Amino acid sequence: MVEIGDRVLLYAVYGADSGVPVMSFGGTPSTRWKRPEVVATIESSGVWMVMPDRPGYGGSTRQEGRTVASVASDAVALADALGWERFAVTGGSGGGPHALACAALLPDRVTRCAVTGSNAPPLVDGPEPTEAEEQADPRRNRTSWRAVHGDLRPGLEETARTIMAAVEAGGPEFPPDPGSPPGPPAREDPSAIARLTATFVTSHDGWIDDHLAFARPWGFELGDIQVPVSLWHGSADERAGKYADHLAAAIPHAERKYYVGGHIPPTNAYRELLRWLTLS
């Protein structure tokens, strides 16, 4: 736990302290507690990784009105607490913008930045987007539009109930990639239920505040990023690919990285991403 003013920031650490320091930002929503196969990949990749719960998640104090850029000061406080002068950053899905914020705003601290399935700044002007408009350009998505023009909480709470109902009916912790068999029933794994409860039941504040932050100005310019950046997405994740098109056009010298799979990278792709972060 790190104290930041009147807030606390909770985090988990994985890997050996002799490894390359990496700060990882989870998706929207998520928790600092990671699945065993993810932890095993981290531990075998030569990195020393810290995963904070953003404000409003997992016991970290809510920070109403936070922007995407707000993460930078939290990252500095956490790195200082760990004794890290320099560190790499990574983020998956909704964690991607937060990793990019650190890359843009902390050029003297951040060495490299890798994001997976990251969203790009949305377009929230005009009337509510149609489904066809969202499919054509995910920046014009209904969640971001409603964050500006409506109330997100009822819809997110219904989504959470639907996810937990599927788990209670015997579903896996994560939906499988297209064409892949589902994982084992999450209800039979107490650790999986704990992760799901922390993500979808305990509080929805962090989830809501993430979407509010994405829909507002992010607080930095993608074009200001000078550290090496890699943009990863799966072959079956068309939405993330369209986001990556916009990010690649905006971020100088960003590398495109592809893997076979969906929104969540398989073990081999995640291991390669971590290897990329350790390059000097």
Score class of each variant (00 low, 15 high):
197 T>D: 12
169 A>D: 10
220 F>G: 09
121 P>T: 04
105 L>K: 10
98 H>Y: 12
212 L>A: 13
116 T>A: 15
218 W>Q: 04
130 T>S: 09
171 G>K: 08
139 R>A: 05
161 R>N: 10
214 F>E: 01
193 I>G: 04
227 V>T: 06
103 A>Y: 01
90 T>K: 14
204 H>C: 08
226 Q>W: 06
138 P>W: 12
225 I>K: 00
226 Q>H: 14
87 F>Q: 00
209 D>P: 01
139 R>S: 00
110 V>I: 11
215 A>K: 01
119 N>H: 13
91 G>P: 00
184 P>N: 13
142 R>T: 09
213 A>W: 05
212 L>K: 07
106 L>Y: 06
149 H>D: 10
104 A>E: 08
198 A>R: 07
149 H>Y: 09
213 A>L: 07
112 R>H: 03
126 G>V: 01
97 P>Y: 11
158 E>D: 10
109 R>I: 04
107 P>A: 11
113 C>I: 06
107 P>C: 07
206 G>H: 02
120 A>M: 03
199 T>E: 02
222 L>R: 07
189 D>T: 08
116 T>D: 14
141 N>K: 11
164 M>W: 01
167 V>D: 09
196 L>G: 12
211 H>S: 07
185 P>D: 09
169 A>W: 04
90 T>F: 13
171 G>A: 09
135 Q>G: 15
200 F>T: 09
156 L>V: 01
111 T>K: 06
98 H>W: 14
105 L>W: 04
177 D>P: 05
105 L>C: 07
203 S>E: 11
149 H>P: 10
198 A>T: 10
154 P>W: 09
131 E>T: 13
219 G>Y: 10
99 A>Y: 05
182 P>W: 08
218 W>Y: 03
99 A>Q: 03
111 T>V: 15
172 P>S: 03
94 G>P: 05
202 T>S: 14
134 E>N: 11
90 T>V: 13
138 P>M: 02
110 V>R: 00
96 G>K: 01
93 S>N: 07
190 P>T: 04
163 I>V: 15
120 A>Q: 05
96 G>D: 03
119 N>W: 14
170 G>N: 04
197 T>M: 06
194 A>Q: 09
215 A>E: 07
129 P>R: 00
201 V>S: 06
217 P>C: 08
85 E>T: 15
123 L>S: 11
160 A>L: 01
159 T>Y: 15
212 L>H: 13
164 M>A: 06
97 P>G: 07
125 D>P: 00
140 R>K: 06
200 F>P: 03
153 R>G: 00
202 T>C: 12
132 A>C: 00
187 R>P: 04
174 F>S: 14
93 S>E: 06
136 A>S: 12
122 P>A: 00
188 E>H: 15
167 V>S: 04
118 S>A: 08
225 I>G: 01
187 R>S: 15
171 G>V: 10
198 A>N: 13
125 D>M: 00
225 I>P: 05
144 S>T: 12
88 A>D: 10
104 A>H: 05
126 G>K: 07
159 T>F: 15
219 G>Q: 06
85 E>K: 08
213 A>I: 01
226 Q>E: 15
203 S>D: 06
141 N>I: 02
120 A>I: 03
85 E>R: 14
203 S>A: 13
176 P>F: 02
120 A>R: 04
132 A>K: 06
223 G>S: 14
187 R>Y: 10
193 I>H: 00
198 A>D: 14
193 I>T: 08
185 P>E: 09
226 Q>I: 09
